[in-house]
Amino acid sequence: MRFSRYFQELMLAYKAELDDLRSDSEGKDVMRHRLKEKREQLAFLLPMMASNPEMLAPAFHNAFLFMNPLSFESLSSKEANKLPSWKSLAGAVKLEPWAEKMAQLVLAEPEGDAFMVTAACLEYLSRSHHTKAQATTATEDDDEDNGEQSEDAELHENGDLDGNYGRHGRDDGDDGDDVDLEEAGADWLAEQGFDRKD
């Protein structure tokens, strides 16, 4: 996914704002309480809608139901002056009933239409980013595991580790390793107190 500069910068600010709302100075989870406060303060925050939309957007956290995620994949690459109207996204996103009154309050403002599109996209990106971050972490773990297996295979060939037989987890038997493995196995059994077979 390629972000426009607009969404790239806003996404960082929005994530920071959500993180700030998530816990207090003692590390306690207070997000539900702080989101409630943010929603109650929405009318007072409206003047910041154009200049700092990330300050208002958390009021709509978990307020959107995404019917067509691909629309938002495309939307995230657009700059602010290229955003579609909120009404044009009617088939792609719906509001939770509890957020309808807040949306009406916002849409009554001149910048409200652009803000609703921005807030929906930020919310989509925050969810998508979290999901992809988990997938990326899993992929990196797999890559690390594969790297460790390769290193283990090299160490095994030097007689430093038992278990992994080459990169593919098996011994091809082309380089005479069978004899070395048998000797290593016999040495190990002898160390455990078993008689060595001749």
Rank of each mutant, 00 (worst) to 15 (best):
D113P: 03
K101L: 13
A99E: 01
N81D: 14
K82Y: 07
A114K: 13
D24E: 07
Q41T: 10
L125P: 03
E26M: 15
M55Q: 10
L46W: 00
T137S: 07
S88R: 03
V106P: 00
R32F: 12
H156C: 04
Y124L: 08
G147C: 02
K87L: 05
A114S: 03
E148K: 06
P47G: 02
N52C: 12
F72T: 07
G159V: 10
A153I: 03
Q149H: 02
S85G: 05
S71W: 08
Y124W: 14
L75M: 10
V117D: 00
S128T: 14
A99H: 06
S51G: 11
L89A: 07
A119E: 00
F44L: 14
N52E: 13
K78H: 09
L75C: 05
A57M: 05
E151R: 11
G159D: 07
T118M: 01
E26N: 13
F72M: 08
E144W: 02
D160H: 15
L105M: 15
S74Q: 13
P58T: 10
T137K: 06
H156D: 04
G112R: 00
A90V: 11
K28A: 11
N52R: 13
S51V: 05
L107F: 00
L161P: 08
A92P: 02
D160T: 03
M102K: 15
T139D: 07
A135C: 01
D162C: 08
L65G: 01
D162T: 05
M31A: 02
H130Y: 07
L35N: 09
L155A: 15
A99R: 12
M48P: 01
E151F: 11
F66R: 10
R32G: 06
P58K: 07
E140D: 12
P53Q: 14
E54S: 04
M49S: 05
D152R: 14
A119T: 00
H61N: 13
V93F: 04
S150E: 08
M48A: 15
